[in-house]
């Protein structure tokens, strides 16, 4: 790059700024971990909790699990089912739509992309309330399937953009070859395109899964009686005032997502997110 960056003094400067950002990023994670693992008298029960607690315990987790096991289990399973439906549906709808988009005239695909893009502008709260009224009539209210159907709206446009970006990067010759050899449209889609696009589809699935796992707005309105994990945390931290359990649950919610984020950081470059809009 430019010669200025090779200057050792500048390099040191960049490094120091980078370290500061890393520390600021890690402090909240650190607080979450010590509240989950340190004895309560040194964290939430202390008026001025010490920055470096000295006694650690697993009893916060054991307490959260044993005292709440049935509620926690139900919330965990509900989150898991909902997120998996959201991810699977997103990939199924998104993959076909993306492939269709790649076969359309530019004007038509631009129109469809803008319809999808426009749907992301509608606030979840604005549509969650009419949806809750309809779901109540349809018997989908408070169910994992109903919640998944609503959360799908948050992830579907993004999934289409991501998979579209993946499809654009595939070599065109292979598909052409398959068609010349007599493969039909759908056959070449499943036997040639699908295997090639797997990494991008997998990344889209993980991202959708993760966004559903974290989703709050639809979950609090459409599924308040049998809550998902984020809503359980919300109820514990506000209504029940149980910060300790909320923190233990929070760590439980965070661990799988952190793992997914680390996996995704290889897949997700900014251009994935922007390809549908700039491309």
């Amino acid at each position: 790059m430019v010669s200025e960056y090779n200057n050792p003094r500048n390099r040191k400067f960049y490094f120091i700024i980078a370290i500061i950002f890393v520390i600021v990023t890690l402090i909240p994670m650190y607080v979450l971990i010590i509240i989950a693992f340190a004895v309560p008298s040194q964290t939430v029960a202390a008026y001025y909790p010490p920055l470096f607690p000295s006694q650690f315990t697993l009893s916060n987790f054991i307490g959260a699990f044993s005292g709440y096991s049935s509620i926690l289990q139900a919330a965990f399973i509900k989150s898991l089912i909902t997120a998996t439906i959201v991810g699977a549906l997103a990939v199924a709808l998104g993959f076909h739509a993306s492939y269709g988009l790649s076969k359309m005239s530019n004007r038509m695909s631009a129109l469809i992309i803008s319809v999808l893009f426009f749907s992301t502008m509608i606030p979840s709260l604005t549509i969650a309330i009419p949806i809750s009224v309809s779901f109540l009539k349809l018997g989908l209210y408070d169910s994992a399937l109903g919640l998944a159907l609503a959360q799908e709206l948050v992830v579907l446009p993004m999934t289409v953009f991501m998979i579209t970006g993946t499809l654009q990067s595939l070599p065109k010759q292979l598909e052409l070859q398959a068609r010349v050899d007599g493969a039909g449209f759908m056959q070449s889609l499943y036997t040639v395109i699908l295997p090639l696009a797997k990494p991008g589809i997998f990344a889209a699935f993980l991202l959708s899964w993760m966004m559903s796992w974290d989703e709050f707005t639809f979950a609090v309105i459409l599924s308040p009686v049998h809550p998902t994990l984020p809503i359980l945390i919300y109820i514990d931290s506000t209504a029940r005032g149980n910060i300790l359990f909320a923190s233990a649950f929070a760590l439980l919610v965070t661990i799988p997502v952190i793992i997914i984020t680390l996996v995704l950081s290889k897949f997700i470059k900014g251009n994935y997110l922007t390809s549908g809009v700039t491309g």
Partner: peptide, 19 residues
């Protein structure tokens, strides 16, 4: 490391910052 908070749920962020 900078990318990590992206994976922390919004409600979890709220709980941590409340602490």
């Amino acid at each position: 490391i900078l990318f990590l908070p992206f994976g922390v749920a919004t409600i979890v962020t709220a709980v941590i910052f409340h602490d």
